[in-house]
């Protein structure tokens, strides 16, 4: 492992039935960077993220987070590694029976060892970080989609993870809210030094926050491009990649 990598994916293969969703996918993510995974619909971006967060076991290959291979089943450092990562799911994935504050408090009270008042103060800090300091007592069903995402982000950040995975953080949000989320991502990256991996196809977001990107091919299951988003848009030899980053359909 290089001095600067925090995640190393080696030859990852994912097979569903006859379908090779991912095939020979290898890349590294450096500590402290904002790394983007893009690709058309059905290219396996979310599948890649589900494997990187240990939710599914791959058909082949390795995924190292730090020095732990989370793809190896029964890895003894697996649960310790899980505490180093935070995940924001597409719709927030808040527990519906708990208030927003209780959702954020859940990992803090379970794993930090703080007394109840300190947990409450910490929840207040995390909620104000995402601008939800007044919505702690609301149930997830009582707040909007954008707020759910921000609450999910607060929960993902609860234990100050080294690595934050965001699945389509700006999908389904209005442009202003999406831009606010981008600002929040940059803010978290700069102030907390968190490594952030974003699965998205929101071009505004990609150019606003992304430092490096990989693009998955729609049918191949391979990485078809890698580099800084602006370079991929302007200089990539593959027309599919340039079209993606300039938002042009194939026949123009």
């Amino acid at each position: 492992m290089g001095a600067n990598d925090i995640i190393r994916v080696e030859n990852l293969a994912v097979v569903y039935g006859e379908d090779h969703v991912l095939d020979g996918v290898s890349f590294t993510v450096n500590k402290g960077e904002i790394f983007i995974i893009v690709g058309g619909s059905g290219s396996g971006k979310s599948t890649l993220m589900r494997h990187m967060t240990g939710l599914e076991a791959p058909a082949g290959g390795n995924i190292f987070i730090g020095d732990t291979d989370i793809a190896a089943s029964g890895s003894k450092d697996f649960s310790a590694t899980l505490k180093r990562i935070g995940v924001l799911f597409q719709a927030g994935a808040l527990l519906g029976s708990m208030t927003v504050a209780e959702n954020v408090a859940l990992p803090i009270s379970e794993f930090s060892g703080l007394p109840a008042e300190a947990v409450a103060a910490m929840v207040q800090i995390k909620l104000s970080l995402v601008g939800l300091e007044c919505y702690g007592e609301h149930l997830p069903s009582e707040i909007s989609g954008g707020m759910k995402k921000r609450a999910g982000l607060a929960r993902a950040l609860a234990l100050n993870p080294d690595i934050l995975f965001l699945d389509e953080p700006s999908a389904g949000l209005d442009p202003v809210t999406a831009a606010e989320i981008d600002q929040l991502i940059l803010h978290i990256n700069q102030t907390l030094g968190t490594t952030i991996i974003i699965v998205t196809h929101d071009l505004d977001s990609i150019f606003a926050v992304g430092q490096r990107a990989i693009m998955l091919g729609r049918e191949s299951g391979h990485i078809i491009a890698r580099g800084a988003p602006a370079d991929l848009r302007d200089h990539d030899p593959n027309p599919e990649v340039r079209r993606f980053f300039t938002r042009k359909p194939p026949d123009t």
Binding site: I125, S128, L129, E133, C134, E137, H138, T191
Partner: peptide
């Protein structure tokens, strides 16, 4: 920078809680 993350006053909330 880190301290700027924290609002040391009481949050000024006008949204009533539903409880």
């Amino acid at each position: 920078k880190t301290l700027a993350l924290v609002d040391f006053g009481q949050p000024d909330c006008r949204i009533p809680s539903h409880k």
